[in-house]
Amino acid sequence: MSQRAFLAVAALVVVAGFLVSRVLTNQYYYFAAYVILQYVVLATAWNILGGYTGYVNFGTPAFFALGAYTSVVLIKMMNAPLGLQLVGGAAVAGLLGLGIGYLTLRLRGVFFSIATLALAVVLQTLFVNWEYTGGARGLSLIRPATAPLFGHYVQFLFEVMLILALFAVGVAAWIEHSWIGRGLAAIRDNEEAAECMGVPTLRLKLVATTVSGALMGLAGAPFPYFVTFVEPGSVFDLNYAVNSLAMPMIGGSTTWVGPIIGAVLLGTAQQVATVTISSALNLLIVGVILVAFVILAPEGIVGLIQRLARRREGDVRLAHGKAT
């Protein structure tokens, strides 16, 4: 998809989202759609590091929570508007991402993943002990009741998350098709070989970890206003780690389309399961689907479709060969 086409589609989606928010009045749909879109951002962000570069990050909750808590601090300190919260959350989480990037100097593969898991727990302990942001008890926030043009504030947040999701996907797609994406793919396939061929591996990895971290922080920044109550247990939830890596794995982790497919499918399925069955059972379903995909279809849905398409193409070619 060319850049102009992407921008046109994005603009259409944003306008469509706005128009829908004028018609649809049931608040539940905005809550559900917000959560799914938030997963689109998280999955896309995870995929920039995990899918393109091959570094598995178990620390999504750390970045997400950092984004959320940056907003909390900004709100408490100066009642900052949402725009500033977004910028702040992304910046702080991006800095953490940069730090993680330097960690890859020493830690590869499994060790990197375990370190990210450790990072999430250490950060959670810090916030549990930090009284300013409510400590372990958590903190209630008052959000504006309405937003101009949108009416209810949740509808406004839905539109904001829609724009953030498009932004994240746009960034991922741009990285994928630029020289950065090719460099990252080279690192994924063989880091030593890439380094030997003159790929600036460290610089590229720093770009990947920073962008990935910043986007995760961006997903977390509107969260305090969305739930109006922030406590360490909910923002450092392991579900974010599992979902943000399960969604790209299920959708397909080598293209920007994969995380969207995974997030929409899995996110919707979870919303439906939460309402109809139970919220614990839907997590079980995520786990089972993740394990099944990792074993049976490691390339995800996109990979499956590509394989099918290739086979059909092969059949067509075969048929032509017989005819001539």
């Binding site: 598995v56 593969g109 499994v110 392991l238 890596l245 786990g287 394990v291 990792v294 490691p298």
Partner: peptide, 14 residues
């Protein structure tokens, strides 16, 4: 081994 890691992560979750 990374996919194996994700596999065990999934088992943990289940």
């Amino acid at each position: 081994s990374l996919r194996g890691l994700v596999f065990f992560f999934g088992i943990l979750f289940i």
